[in-house]
């Protein structure tokens, strides 16, 4: 039995897998497009029997469920790829991890269970500070900021810039001070149609409080479906 999703194509079957990976450390500075290229090259180096697209310029089929922004670390990110021969996930993991650059580690491979459309929310952890602000002040300001009935901000989307109420897209918040910095946990609306970046929330907060945010870490911890289960 294959551990992949088997897709029948002309001339036989191909095998689709979902890969879960971590992107941490210096790898966080890779943009989505660059990550795409990086993974493609890793497949090439790993000499896996990958399926190529059928166009005039064939390239390795690769699709990301939920692109991750430049500067963000991610601990349970995923992409889908296809092989022309069925392989044991453990072997694919081993070969990919040998080929991947610093900071990107494959943690699991399985047949895709969900479609990317079901993604509804994501959980983030952030650590930020501002010149001239201590941790206590940041925390107090944050609590005041969140206590507002609405938080209006300009949000860029495919259709242009719109003013939206961020509060309707914030589903969970935890905050504490960490030395001179503010440590936040945020659960935000996520997905293909509507997505809120945590830095839009914190940049709006910083502008409101009157400082420029220095980010020490931004991490996406989990990607969730509507029912709260983890995307897999």
């Amino acid at each position: 039995m294959s551990k992949a999703r088997v897709i029948a194509v002309e001339g036989g079957n191909i095998f689709e897998y979902r890969t879960f990976f971590k992107k941490t450390g210096r790898a966080k500075y890779i943009s989505h497009l660059d990550l795409y290229r990086t993974i493609q090259r890793s497949f090439q180096r790993a000499k896996l029997p990958v399926w190529h697209t059928l166009g005039y310029n064939p390239h390795i089929y690769l699709t990301f469920s939920m692109p991750i922004s430049l500067g963000y670390e991610g601990v349970n990110e995923s992409f889908d790829f296809r092989l022309v021969t069925d392989m044991e996930p453990d072997e694919v993991i081993r070969r990919l991890n040998d080929a991947l650059p610093e900071g990107i580690v494959v943690t699991g491979i399985a047949a895709p269970a969900h479609k990317p459309e079901v993604i509804a929310r994501a959980e983030y952890s952030l650590l930020l500070s501002g010149k001239g602000f201590d941790g206590e002040t940041l925390l107090t300001k944050w609590q005041e900021f969140m206590a507002q009935p609405e938080i209006m901000a300009e949000k860029r989307s495919k259709k242009g810039i719109k003013t939206v109420d961020l509060k309707t897209m914030i589903h969970g918040v935890s905050a504490q001070k960490e030395g001179n910095a503010l440590s936040l946990g945020l659960t935000l609306t996520a997905g293909i149609n509507l997505n809120l970046n945590p830095t839009l929330v914190t940049d709006t907060f910083a502008a409101w409080a009157g400082f420029e945010a220095d980010y020490h870490s931004i991490r996406r911890d989990r990607i969730l479906c509507e029912d709260g289960s983890e995307f897999c």
Partner: peptide, 20 residues
């Protein structure tokens, strides 16, 4: 370097760590 990198274009230029 780290706190500054997210304030500039293409921060990957400035941090190294590339394969090979």
């Amino acid at each position: 370097l780290e706190p500054l990198l997210l304030k500039v274009q293409k921060p990957a230029r400035y941090i190294g760590g590339e394969l090979h």
